[in-house]
């Protein structure tokens, strides 16, 4: 009988009392916009395209962000400079569909696409939430300061010939018989 009362009534009463005491606890609510919360650097907010340390576009239009995107809100088209560097002819994010999941950033092999702590992206016109490359591209390296994909990758571009990437030997002389 006692255990019944303890389990049914007493425990409920204790719960009620504990919740009641919360009346005198300070609320956790942050009074945005008067109060600005601290945004952590790895917050997943507005998406940007960054540049490599040499100031060139990092995006190589590999399409991995687009395929990783669960809502399919990224569309781009690969094109190529004279010297063989791939870059996007256009790069479009439909932020009215974006769910800020960050899969694109995870998929990006060149650290080009990054999510930033900016979350204030509301627009009165939905069409304004479609961002093109001009809107996305920033003039810095974003969170990753040193990485330069073309310094690592074997593909030849202007200013970096065959055998000049990270860990590469001089190109082979096909005519040579030396071991």
């Amino acid at each position: 009988m006692f255990s019944l009362i303890r389990d049914t009534l007493l425990s409920q009463a204790v719960t009620l009392w504990r919740v009641f005491r919360k009346l005198f606890v300070k609320a956790d609510t942050v009074q945005y916009p008067e109060e600005r919360p601290y945004m952590f650097p790895r917050w997943r907010g507005r998406i940007i395209l960054s540049r490599d340390p040499d100031g060139e576009e990092r995006c190589v239009a590999c399409n991995l962000c687009a395929v990783a995107c669960p809502v399919d809100c990224i569309a781009l088209q690969k094109t190529e400079t004279e010297d063989g560097r791939w870059y996007p002819e256009f790069f479009r994010i439909n932020f009215s569909r974006c769910i800020m999941c960050g899969f694109c950033e995870e998929a990006c092999p060149t650290n080009a696409i990054q999510l930033t702590p900016d979350f204030e992206m509301a627009e009165y016109v939905r069409q304004d939430m479609v961002w093109e490359k001009e809107d996305l591209l920033i003039d810095g390296t974003g969170k990753y300061h040193d990485y330069n994909f073309y310094r690592v990758a074997g593909k030849q571009i202007a200013g970096k010939g065959k055998g000049e990437a990270l860990n590469e030997a001089e190109p082979v002389d096909v005519r040579s018989l030396l071991p």
Partner: peptide, 8 residues
């Protein structure tokens, strides 16, 4: 409710 849930 919000007071009891530490909200405003």
């Amino acid at each position: 409710l919000s007071f009891w849930q530490e909200r405003l």
